[in-house]
Write a protein that binds this DNA or RNA. Sequence first.
DNA 1: TGGCGTCGTGTTGACGTCAACATGGTGACC
DNA 2: GGTCACCATGTTGACGTCAACACGACGCCA
Lengths: 359, 359
Amino acid sequence: MLVSFRGVKRPTETQHEEVGAVEGRGPSLADVAELAGVSTQTVSRVSMGLDNVRPATRDRVLAAMAQLGYAPNTAARALRYGSFRTIGMIAHRLARTGESRTVEAVVEAARTEGYTVTLLDVESPSSQDVAAAAARLSHQAIDGLVIVRAETATPDSLALPPRMPVVVSDSRFVGHHPAVGTDQAGGARSATQHLLDLGHRTVHHVAGPAGSAPAQVRAEAWRAALEAVRAVVPPVVEGDWSAGSGYAAGRALAADPDVTAIFCANDEMAAGVLRALHEAGRAVPGEVSVVGFDDILLAEHLWPPLTTVAQDFDEIGRRLVARLLRQVRGQDGADLHEVVPVELRVRASTAPPPARRDA
Amino acid sequence: MLVSFRGVKRPTETQHEEVGAVEGRGPSLADVAELAGVSTQTVSRVSMGLDNVRPATRDRVLAAMAQLGYAPNTAARALRYGSFRTIGMIAHRLARTGESRTVEAVVEAARTEGYTVTLLDVESPSSQDVAAAAARLSHQAIDGLVIVRAETATPDSLALPPRMPVVVSDSRFVGHHPAVGTDQAGGARSATQHLLDLGHRTVHHVAGPAGSAPAQVRAEAWRAALEAVRAVVPPVVEGDWSAGSGYAAGRALAADPDVTAIFCANDEMAAGVLRALHEAGRAVPGEVSVVGFDDILLAEHLWPPLTTVAQDFDEIGRRLVARLLRQVRGQDGADLHEVVPVELRVRASTAPPPARRDA
DNA sequence: TGGCGTCGTGTTGACGTCAACATGGTGACC
DNA sequence: GGTCACCATGTTGACGTCAACACGACGCCA
C-alpha cells in the first residue's frame, strides 16, 4: 500500500536564480515579505484578508505580491490546517449518464461547501480495483471519499486507509459504509406497475449486469411486482448497461410477438431496445411499450420520448456530500442507508397493449 | 483573488488523547517511530520502500504502522516535494456528453502518468466564471490546469495564478494558451460535403450558441462548404447544445418542405431535431437527412442511427495531459494549437434527397 | 593491528504557512 | 503626567516529511 512518491525532480543546486528564471516553485511569503520590507506574518495577514494591517502597509504588501506573482502554497496551508477541503470520488465509466450526472451533482454540492472534488476512474467496478483506487487517492490530497456504483459483490468492507471518511452510492458496500442511494426498488416497482396498469398482461425486463447490486434490486422489484398480480414472469434478458447491449436484447425481444411491454434497467439500454423495435417494424408504443430508468437528458428526445423513472441526481449529490462532510467533521458515524425517492415520468413510449388477437 | 481558508476547526487544547479517541489527524511518522523504538527517518525509509533497513527493524516498523493505522500525510509530502501529482480541470455542464467524455479521457490519461484530476464545474462558460474557478483551484492542490470549452469570448488571456501551467481545449483562449482541440472545421466541412455529395441542393444548420468558439468554427466551415459549390446558404438556426433547443429548431425546420438536409452542431441537438421530424411526420432519411457532431455513445442507437462526426476524445485527453505535463516539467511553452482529426461515421440518418417535385 | 569502506541508523534543518505570544508605540482617560 | 488599553507588527514554533549529513559498528585487507 505504501507507494513511492518519486520522480519529482527538483533543482537542489540552483539556490536563487536570477529573476525571470523558471523556478520549480513560486515565491513564498518570505519573498514577498522581503520585498515589501515587512515580516512574513504581515504578508500572511494580508493574504488572508485580515483587517488588522495598516492600509499603507497592506498596499505595499499587495504591490509586492503582484510584482512577484505570489500565490499561497496550498500544501503548506493544508499541512498547517490538516485539511485540503477536497473530496475524493471513485467512479467507473464516468462518461455514462448516471455516473456523469452524479459526478456533476457531487462537484456542485461540494463547491457550495467550499470543497473541490478529485476524481478517479476505475477500469472495472471490482473490489480490488476500487480498493486500489482508494489507496491511490489516499496518497492524494483528500479529506474524504465518495464511491459511486462500486458494483461487484465484495465479501467485506473496503480496505481503506484508517480514519478515511467514506460514503457510498448504489453499491455493495451498503451496510458496510454510510450510503445514499436512489429508491431502486420503488422505481422498478412503479415502472412495472405503470405497464401493468396500462393493461399489459406481463412485462419483460432487460436487466443490468448480474454482478451489479442496483441491477439486482431493480430486477427483484420487477419480479415482485409481477408476482403480486400473479403475472407470468418471463426470463430476464441481461445487458451491461450499454445501448449496444440493449440493442442486442431488443432484437431478441422484438422477434417475440408476445412481448408487449419492456422495462429496461436504464435509459441507454432502452434506447437500444427502441432501435431494435423500430428495425423490426414493431410500433412503439402501438405494439410494444418501453420504460427506462434514470431519465437521462436525452430520454425526452428519443423516439418516441421515453417513459422512464427519474433519479434525482442533484439530491443524491447533495446528500452524499452532506453525509461525507458530517463524517469529516466527526459528527456522523452511522452506517445508515439513505434512500432518495424517484419519480415516474410518463412520456410517449408507453400505451395500452394492442387489442388481443385471441380476445 | 486571495481567499480566506478559515472554518477548519482543529483542536488545539487536546494534546495527546487516549488511544481510540477520534483525532483530527492520523498518526505521524513520529508516532510510529516512538512505538517501534526507532527514528522518524527509519520509518520514512520503510514507508518509501527503501532497502537500506535491516529486515528485523523493518518488520518492527511495519507492525507499528499497522497497529497505529499509519498513512503518510500527503500535504507534508507535497510541501516537501513541491508537487501534488494532481491536475485541475475546469469544465462547464460536465454531464453533457462531449464534456464527460473529455473528462473521462483526461482522468484516464492522467492516471497513466501517475496524476489524479481535481474537477471544477463552472455555472457558465464566461471568462469571469472560468477565472474565478481557476482562482479557486489555484488554492487547491494542483500542479496544472486543463480548461475545457471555456466558450465565451474573452478579450484577453485568463488571469491565472502566475507560473500555473495551463492547456485549453476548444476555447477562446486558443492563441493565448497552449491548446488541443478537435478539427472542428474539417468535421463540419466533411459533414456538409457528405450531404451535398448525396445530392442535396443545400444543407441547413442548427448551430451552437453564438458565443461559443467551436460553434462559430463549425458554422463557418458549413457556410464555406456551401459557398464553395455555390449552394444557397440558408439562415442558421441557433441552439444552445441541448436536445431541447434542437427540438425547437427541428420543429421550425420540419415545417419547411424545402428542407432536405440538416447538419446539427452536436448530437444532442440532432436528437431533438430527429424527434421534431418524427412528430411532423417527415421521414428520416427518406425526406430529410440529419448529421450530428461528436458521436456520443447513443448516436448509433438513436432512430434512425445517426450519421455524425466522431471526435476522438481519448486522443484529445491524452494530448491535453501530455501537453500539460510537459509544461509542468518546464519543457513546453509554445502556445501551439494541436488539432486532432475527426472521422465521419455514416449511419442511417442520411440518404439522397427525395425525387424533386419540380424535376 | 591500523586504516578504510560499508551498512544501518540517528540528527538536523528546510519546505511555506499561520496561531500564539511578544513588543513597542500611540492615544485616552482620570 | 502616569497608567492602561489597544493597535500594528515582529518573533517563535509547529504542522509531517524527507534529503543531507553525521556517526558508530563491523569487516576487510595490508
